[in-house]
Amino acid sequence: MSEFDDLYREVILDHYKSPRHYGRLERPDGEAEGQNPLCGDELSISVAYAGDTISDIRFEGRGCAISQAATSMLTELVIGRGIAEVAAMSKDELLAEIGIPLTPVRLKCALLGLGVLKVALHRSAGTPLPEEWANLGQDLELR
């Protein structure tokens, strides 16, 4: 496997070219958007709840392959899971799913979607925004 394939593994390219759950929910229970000013990545995420679980999710955005593919992968990870559980989900779980080593600059791209989702959950369901995201949130200029 060449380094190229190693970095942009087929699965990442696949998610980048055919993003899952792309778009915006018509009647979302929660929404947030965020950007990474370093490279201009932009994302918006809308979620719907069924009781205590995330029943549906959509994302829209533009930016680098890592940010868009990672968010697409994230949507598959969280559908059907508890709101509180996702709000507490570690960065490592998503990074393991992405599965390739990332430099610090690219790490911000990869984690943008998770940060935006946590802000959406925090705003709509009152889940805590954990400490580790507080700093990241500043970096990412989440709004």
Partner: peptide, 12 residues
Amino acid sequence: VHPHDVAQILDW
């Protein structure tokens, strides 16, 4: 293609 992806592939 996003410029970051361009630069990343060129780096390789």
